[in-house]
């Protein structure tokens, strides 16, 4: 029986083994010719080629698109118009009133996203931190509960969106609960406020398990003897939390905060399936704006979408640099 698994495994990898054998002789010739340095190039080539074509070239092209006009996607159909697209995005007659902006949809998306980011990241960090602190206690079945909170992280955003659309619809589970509590049933996603709250709640539900894991890892790295020493001195728990837990969790906490910010700014998938940006434009966020301007609307404007994505990218670059700096600092502290 033990041989069976091995045979099956060999049968499954057999095409790859054959492939690897076939490329060996030509690579040997290449190696003799260029030395091991040339082999490094061979190993790097596929990944770098894909990087180059699908990340680096688009990155450069993005600027070109943002400075050209027209509705065509091919570059030779697009006249150069300079900073016109950025002007269109950012120009308002009266900056206190969104409606006077040339591209008021963009400003709607920006303000919606800002509101979403503030509330969602706060909720996310608070809920993840509480869960991590609880999982860090001396409880039975910690592994099980850790898995419980992680479960929605694996679900696809489309599934998440549909699960909650189903619960929030008129004949849904939430209305069943509402009626049993003596409240009026609602069509939750048709209400501007509830729809906005739902996007925050649902995205927190879907991702909090991920941040909980990072925070829990940080908590478990705090040496036990610190707590024991505090217990001996009869330090009150609130003081232990403020003086030991928070400072030592600091680096992980910062990483979580910035990661949550980066992902919150780009929110699209689950919200698009849940509310489609509605009702009206009350849950229209930046990525959906870019998607609609660039691809989905009839009067599509790739240049405008590119300009908007560059503005969003600038925010993300700042946040990512912050994250890299923070996680390097966290690593340094762990090493010490």
């Amino acid at each position: 029986m033990a041989g069976l698994g091995e045979t099956l495994g060999r049968a499954a990898t057999w095409p790859f083994t054959l492939m690897a054998r076939a490329v060996d002789p030509p690579l040997r010739v290449w190696q003799r010719w260029t030395g091991t340095g040339g082999m490094a190039a061979v190993f790097l080539a596929p990944n770098l080629a894909i990087f180059g074509v699908f990340v680096l070239i688009p990155l450069v092209l993005n600027f070109v698109y943002s400075m050209t006009g027209g509705t065509g996607i091919l570059l030779d159909q697009r006249p150069f118009i300079g900073m016109e697209q950025y002007g269109r995005l950012l120009e308002c007659e009266d900056y206190t009133r969104r409606i006077t902006c040339r591209e008021d949809q963009f400003w709607t998306a920006v303000t919606n996203t800002a509101g979403f980011v503030i509330f969602q990241v706060t909720l996310m960090v608070v809920v993840s931190l509480i869960t991590a602190l609880i999982l860090n206690r001396n409880i039975r079945g910690r592994g099980f509960f850790r898995a419980v909170f992680f479960f929605p992280v694996l679900l696809s955003p489309v599934v998440v969106g549909l699960i909650w659309r189903w619960i929030l619809q008129r004949e849904g589970l939430l209305n069943l609960i509402a009626v049993n509590l003596g409240l009026e049933p609602e069509i939750w996603l048709n209400d501007r406020f509830y729809a906005f709250a739902a996007t925050i709640g649902v995205s927190t539900w879907a991702h909090m398990g991920f941040y909980t894991l990072i925070l829990l890892a940080g908590l478990q790295a705090i040496p036990r003897d610190l707590y024991e020493a505090a217990e001996m001195d009869a330090t009150p728990p609130s003081r232990v939390f403020r003086r030991i837990t928070l400072p030592l969790l600091g680096p992980n906490f910062a990483v979580v905060l910035v990661l949550a910010l980066i992902r919150s700014v780009q929110i699209f998938d689950e919200v698009y399936v849940l509310t489609g940006g509605g009702p009206g434009t009350s849950t229209l966020y930046l990525t959906q704006y870019i998607y609609e301007v660039g691809f989905a609307s009839i009067l599509r404007n790739p240049g405008l979408a590119a300009a908007a994505s560059i503005l969003m990218g600038a925010v993300l670059v700042v946040l990512t640099l912050l994250q890299l700096w923070l996680s390097r600092r966290a690593e340094g502290r762990r090493a010490r």
Partner: peptide
Amino acid sequence: MVPLSVILVPLYSV
């Protein structure tokens, strides 16, 4: 630093 949502338009063109 370059998530997909930032390069949608040029990636589509590529």
